[in-house]
């Protein structure tokens, strides 16, 4: 067990856990931030995507000891009022079906757009390929990313 000072969604949090604990379970079990989802535990599905200093990472394989070095952002902290351009685009396209994978999709898409404000179709595919949606909402996700990208360009 070790003591960690985490910065999650702009807030300081102190927790004591085993240093091997993946950030996913720190968020879900210890901080009650359950927007970050458990899908595979092996960095294969993207449901647990969070940002470390703005970069998308899979929290299910990122130990708390590593995450503690960075500013951590989860879906709950992506925007204060749920109005990040990507979230707004998701609502405009009414993307979700079951909705379980969407937080991870949104976190990955928002990290992509931060680095590349106007991605091509191939760039979107390449960046998003690690995020699985069993409901098959990929076409709407791509449309929403483009809508958000256009908002970036005009704002």
């Amino acid at each position: 067990m070790a003591l960690y000072n985490l910065k999650v969604n702009g807030k300081k949090q102190q927790i004591e856990v085993d240093e091997t604990t993946p950030m996913l379970w720190v968020l879900r079990d210890h901080l009650d931030l359950v927007g970050t989802k458990f899908g595979c535990g092996a960095a294969q599905c993207g449901a647990c995507t969070i940002h470390l200093d703005g970069d998308a990472v899979r929290s299910c394989v990122t130990p708390v000891s590593v995450a503690a070095e960075y500013d951590i952002t989860t879906i709950e902290g992506l925007s204060e009022n749920g109005d990040h351009p990507v979230q707004k685009a998701w609502l405009a396209h009414d993307v979700p079906q079951c909705g379980y994978c969407q937080a991870g999709q949104i976190m990955n898409a928002s990290a992509l757009l931060k680095k590349n404000p106007s991605p091509t179709d191939d760039e979107i595919d390449a960046a998003m390929d690690g995020n699985i949606c069993r409901c098959g909402t990929y076409t709407r996700i791509k449309a929403a990313i483009k809508t958000a990208a256009n908002q970036n360009a005009t704002s």
């Binding site: 927007g35 970050t36 879906i75 709950e76 992506l78």
Partner: peptide, 12 residues
Amino acid sequence: KNVDAQKIVTGQ
């Protein structure tokens, strides 16, 4: 619109 959409996209 999906009545749960806002909760889904904000991780509630």
